[in-house]
Design a protein around this nucleic acid. Structure first.
Length: 214
DNA sequence: TGCCAGGCCGGGT
DNA sequence: ACCCGGCATGGC
């Protein structure tokens, strides 16, 4: 039996913030690149990096495959950790070409659980990055858990402080229908809530749309 | 000025 | 199985 609180939270957030329309990208491949670049970085900085790639038409699997790691790192500099992230992007793109001929459409045909395991084997792709790619680029029903999700749920007493990624993801999987549109909007709304109210070093405020939980 | 942002890896306990 | 330093830029 599902705990209705999870859908209720969604309704509250949706009524408060409205539709978020995530992921902010023009193509599935742009989602993949953004998912890697946004690792522990502000989205504003990621947008700059993406813009650099777009401006010279490099935001395709083929173009990035043929770009040197060094040139790539220079272009994505604004997103931070740029040497590391250039490697991680290259790792992902090599995987894409090795296994699916550079085609995300082909990757999409893979059985979802199998694909998730394979993506997690790529060096530099952890659970959040992988689930972001699965959900927002490939339309697979995996809930994306991030720092905001931990903070918001634990602060409102919905999970212990030390909950693992998989445990938290299971909470959403077990208590919601496997609806990709719902998952997409829900994660985006948690981010909106975290950015506006549940900030790291600020006390719980009564203006938070989830304050009714406590 | 220092802390934070849509993580993840590798080495040490 | 956890814990921690490292990775780096731009905003507030």
């Amino acid at each position: 039996m599902k705990n209705r609180i999870f859908l209720e939270i969604f309704d509250r957030l949706y009524k408060f913030f409205g539709p978020q329309g995530w992921w902010p990208a023009e193509t599935p491949f742009e989602v993949c690149v953004g998912a890697i670049l946004t690792q522990n970085a502000s989205w504003k900085n990621v947008e700059r990096a993406i813009k650099n790639l777009k401006e010279i038409n490099l935001l395709t699997p083929e173009a990035l495959y043929n770009l040197s790691e060094k040139e790539l790192s220079e272009l994505i500099k604004p997103s931070g950790f740029y040497n590391l992230k250039a490697k991680r992007l290259k790792n992902f793109i090599h995987f894409l070409f090795e296994n699916y001929g550079g085609s995300l459409e082909k990757m999409k045909e893979e059985e979802p659980e199998t694909l998730r395991k394979k993506l997690l084997e790529i060096k530099g792709l952890g659970p959040e990055t992988v689930d972001s790619i699965l959900l927002y680029a490939l339309d697979k029903p995996f809930f994306v858990v991030d720092a905001y999700t931990y903070r918001i749920l634990s602060r409102h007493g919905l999970c212990p402080e030390e909950t693992s990624y998989e445990e938290l993801q299971s909470l959403f999987h077990e208590n919601l229908d496997k609806d990709t549109d719902l998952f997409k909007e829900y994660h985006a709304l948690l981010v909106a809530c975290g950015k506006n109210f549940c900030k790291k070093r600020e006390p719980l405020c009564k203006d938070c749309p989830l304050s009714y939980l406590r």
